[in-house]
Amino acid sequence: MNMFVFILRRLFQTIPVMIGVTLAVFLMMHLIPGDAAKIMAGENANPDQIEQMRENLGLNDPLHIQYLRFVTNAVQGDLGNSIRTSRPVTEEIFSSRFAITVQLALIGTAAAVLLGLVAGIISATRKYSAADVGIMLVALLGLSLPNFWLGIMLIYLFSVNLGWLPVAGWGTWEHMILPAITLGTGGAAIIARMTRSSMLEVLNQDFIRTAYAKGVSDKVVIYKHALRNALIPVVTVVGLQFGGLLGGAVITETVFAINGLGRLIIDSIRAHDFPMVQGTILVCAVLFVLVNFLVDITYRLINKRIDLN
């Protein structure tokens, strides 16, 4: 199967996922307690105004019609207007917040990958050494520490006590360091453990022995022969991590007072801003699906053997 057919097929496979995502987001609006029209019309609205709002929102139409309208509008980039600001939801999302969250997630992923890979390789090549045991202990710690707690501790240490880095906000590279570490730690721990076990498995394989028998040095065996093969399962984890980081961003952005999508969701939920919540979640979900799609293609590019299946 060639790459083109694969990409097409993979794209087709995202269709049911997308339908599921939009359906879930759409139904959410109808399942959560409270009357959306009532809330949107404002606290002091009279029944007529509420009925008018319901009519405006199309809430009196059958559910499937509503859903179709929602999807049709969404595809055209119309996710409704925010209740709080009355500006279009898409505008609110894509003006700056989207970029900030994607930036944060990317930096977090980069931190996770860098730390995770280096730690994993050191661990695998020095199996059972003090370094290995230490790294795996730290990794276990990193997995079990809650994000918000780690973030607060980092702020306390580096910003409040040492005064090296800003407490909150977004803008310069100094602002990015603590959130990236907060966000990346969990991923780094998972990637480190994954890299270690994957490397150990690969280092035990016959072709590693072949490489040594050719007179290849340890370094080349590890970085050229082993790592390339060990990375195959790690790539999938990195992709999943990136998706997870979007979720983690909600907490991290709140802790560091960053005006990204995560904070937008929280603020919108507090303000009962339904269209905003709905739109933001939809954008995040689509981003997640897109990232997974890209990961699958990358996976295939590295692992040529998939062709066989």
Partner: peptide, 10 residues
Amino acid sequence: EPMTSLNPTL
């Protein structure tokens, strides 16, 4: 094992 003795990614 010629199957496993060659590096699959080279």
